[in-house]
Structure formats: structure tokens, C-alpha cells
Design a protein around this nucleic acid. Structure first.
Lengths: 223, 223
DNA sequence: CAACTATTCAATTAACTAGTTGAATACTAG
DNA sequence: CTAGTATTCAACTAGTTAATTGAATAGTTG
């Protein structure tokens, strides 16, 4: 046995990458980066970490070659360093879902249909919204929202949901709605909000049903 | 924000898997298991770890759901828990090779052609083998070996190479040969041996050339 | 150039992980 | 039932990693 073991060194290098992914916060950061490049601050906000901590996690990801960064103006933007990183993440998720009973359990605990199946009736929502007890969320595209929406509803397209969690008053239930009972947007929104720990339900029916029932509607000229 | 964050928990679960792979020794173990099921002892031998240590790494891999085990007689055999684990390993290797300059460097340092291109001439090998200075390795299938081989050569098919490193006297150069100059087996063997830190070179030509040159040949009846 | 901003660095603490040793367990074979 | 074997467990030490804090850096804008 002459020089230091090549194989050993090689596996150590591979391990660097696995290790970089071996922390929940870093995986969460990678997940956000999978949607496109983000600044350190943006990442810190969505992941609920301090900026310094986020920065350090990003350093580790960069050292492992998983992300790249570039400075634009004041901000440093990070992005995944390639599609293969995305593939690796998918692979990891796949294995996790197939192998870890805990994942299964978590998913069914939080995203179960058990009360997805209990949408909020329109009348109840109207009542509670008037009392300011719920946040009404419209997950349709901005154009549809502008054309008419529930009174007091805020409009956040699904894609931006995770980035705008701070727009929701804390500890207040969110009721989401979309185009109607055959539209899955609101289902998805409810699932995602619950994933972040936000209590959420779905409006029974959607905007068209609401309007047809003669309930009050608001529309936006130009804010 | 009500109950503990689902997303957080979920990423923590994913991280368990990445963390389990985040150590060179465990990756090495996984690599060996990728070739088929092995006992704890066998894994300890090939990876150069103590049995207890190997056992502990295996526990971690099992907790992450990456391997399964079953007891057969005295021994416990471990295996990868599915093809998706293999896919994950490949994915990891792929990213590592594309992203880590260090990997590239290691590979070229150890496996470079720089002296792969200097095979041992037959005459030199004969001389040094007589003095007992080299281990002669025949990497052809056992049948071909039985039909005739270099004097004193040991026969280890490529697939078993890593498992039988202990068969080589330490600190002695290994000279590998196979069917001839167009056969890649010996190249591969040399690369793998070097990867394990064993000094190795390739015989110029192969067994047919050796015999044709009128050099001594041994053959096996039945051991 | 001075004030400001976004990010990174450095130092600290607490928590975790790797590897070692020796003993305990569980099973087989005589 | 005893002796022997393969594996695992338990306890410990040394080393590494995560998060926090506050200061330093680099760059932009007025």
C-alpha cells in the first residue's frame, strides 16, 4: 500500500456532496433555488433563518459545488449549478418517499384529505370574514382577480405562495379559493400552507359559485 | 403558525438520507453492496474498518432505509434496499464528477496514463518474478487460467479484485496481464489496484504473446 | 467621499458524529 | 449443553458541525 488511498479520497469527495445535502435547512434552500435564482436575503426570509446563517449554509453548498453565485448590484444571487443537481434532489426525494416510513406518515398527517374534505361553506366564510377572523386568499392569476374577487381577498398566485407567507397575519386561518370545484389550485394552496404550518381551508366552490349565489364581490380598477 | 412545520420535518427526513450518505466509509460500503449482498465481516474486510465500526455504519444506513439485512445461519447479510438507491448513488457520483474539480484532479493523478503507458516487458517480468519481487496477477476467467498461465501467477477475476486484496503480499508490486494487448482487463485491474493504493503495472502484451515468445508456462490440472 | 446596504467573516457555545474498546447477544455445531 | 462464531451494543474520547452574535468587507447612491 503506497500512497494515500485513492478510493478513500474519492469517496470522501463524494461524501462532501452528500454531507452538504445532509441538513434540512440546506435542502430547503436548494429547493427554493430549484425555482430560480434568489438573493441571500430572499432565501433567509423564506426559510426562516437569519441572514448570516443562510449565508453560511450557502457557503457550504458552494464548496460542494451545488450552487453558484454572482453579484448583481448590491445583492448576491445564488442558483443551482446545473440540472444534474436538480436530478440529484429528485432522486433523493424519490428514495426518501419510497424508503422512509416517517415521510409517508408526515405526509398523510399533514396533507390528509381528512379535513380537505370539509370546505368552508360560502355563508360561513362571509360571516367570519366580516368579523375579520379569517384571511381570504385568491390563488387565481392576477387578471382574474382584478376582474372580480371576494371582498377583502388578497391575491397570491400559487407560484409565489411560499415567498409571501409574511403577508398572512399570524395565527389566523386562511381560506383559499380559486375558479371553482373542479379547479385544483385551492387544494394545492391549502396543502402548501399547511406544510408551512399555516392553518388553511378551502372555500366550498369557487369564485363563480360565490357570485352566482349573489354574495358581495369586489373588483379592482387600478391599485 | 400552528403545529411544528411540516416542511421543516419533511426536509429533515430527506436530510437523514443525505446524511447517511455523507461519510466516505458509508459510501464505500454502499458501493460494495451495489455489487450484491455481503456479510458484515466481508464488508469490514474490503473497506478496512473494524467489524464493530462497519456494523455501526450499517445501522445508520439501515435507519436511513438505504440497506436491508437478513440473517442466514451465523451471518447477517446486508443488501441495498432497492434499485432507487443505486440510482441515487449514480446520481451523486455524476454530480461529484461534474462539480468537484478535486475529483477530476484525483482521478487524473491516480489513474493517469502516464505510466499505464509503460507496461512491464516480458523479459523483465520473468526476471523479477523469479526473484520473488513481484506478484503476478492473471485477471482472466478461471477456465482460461486453468488452461495455462504465467508461472506463479495468481488468478483473480476482475469482479473479485476488491474482495481479495488481502491475497496480495503487502508492499510488493503487482503485474497484471490478460488476454493480450487488445484486452482491457489488465488496464482495468491496474487502475483498480492503484485506486486501493497497491502499486501495479501491466504486462506488455498478454498470455498468448508470452507463450509465443517461448517463455515458461504453467497449467493447472485440478488443485 | 460619507452613509448605507447586503453579505460575509470570526469567535463562541452547544450539540452531534466517528471510531475504539470490550462486553453482551444470538445463533450453530459438536 | 458447551464451545465457538458473527454481530451488535454500551461507554467513552476526540473531533466536527450548527447556530448565534457582532464586527468587517465590498459595493452603491446621494
Amino acid at each position: 500500500m503506497s500512497s494515500s488511498h485513492f478510493k478513500h479520497d474519492l469517496f470522501a469527495q463524494f461524501a462532501r456532496i452528500a454531507k452538504a445535502m445532509g441538513h434540512g435547512n440546506r435542502l430547503e434552500i436548494l429547493e427554493y433555488l430549484a425555482q430560480g435564482e434568489r438573493s441571500v436575503e430572499a432565501l433567509a426570509t423564506v426559510s426562516g433563518l437569519t441572514v448570516a446563517n443562510t449565508s453560511q449554509h450557502l457557503q457550504q453548498l458552494r464548496q460542494a459545488g451545488l450552487v453558484e453565485s454572482s453579484k448583481v448590484g448590491l445583492k448576491v444571487f445564488y442558483r443551482l449549478s446545473g440540472d444534474d443537481v436538480l436530478a440529484l434532489l429528485d432522486c433523493l426525494r424519490g428514495v426518501a418517499e419510497r424508503r422512509l416510513a416517517d415521510v409517508e406518515r408526515l405526509v398523510t398527517t399533514y396533507l390528509t384529505v381528512k379535513d380537505n374534505l370539509e370546505p368552508v361553506p360560502a355563508g360561513e366564510l362571509l360571516e367570519r370574514a366580516r368579523q375579520g377572523l379569517v384571511t381570504v386568499l385568491d390563488v387565481r392569476p392576477p387578471e382574474e382577480y382584478a376582474a372580480g374577487h371576494l371582498p377583502g381577498a388578497i391575491n397570491i398566485p400559487l407560484a409565489e405562495l411560499e415567498d409571501r407567507l409574511q403577508d398572512f397575519p399570524e395565527d389566523q386561518e386562511v381560506v383559499a379559493y380559486c375558479r371553482g370545484p373542479h379547479c385544483v389550485l385551492a387544494f394545492d394552496a391549502v396543502a402548501r400552507l399547511r406544510a408551512e404550518g399555516v392553518p388553511a381551508r378551502r372555500l366550498e366552490g369557487g369564485f363563480p359559485e360565490w357570485r352566482r349565489a349573489g354574495l358581495p364581490v369586489e373588483s379592482t380598477r387600478k391599485t
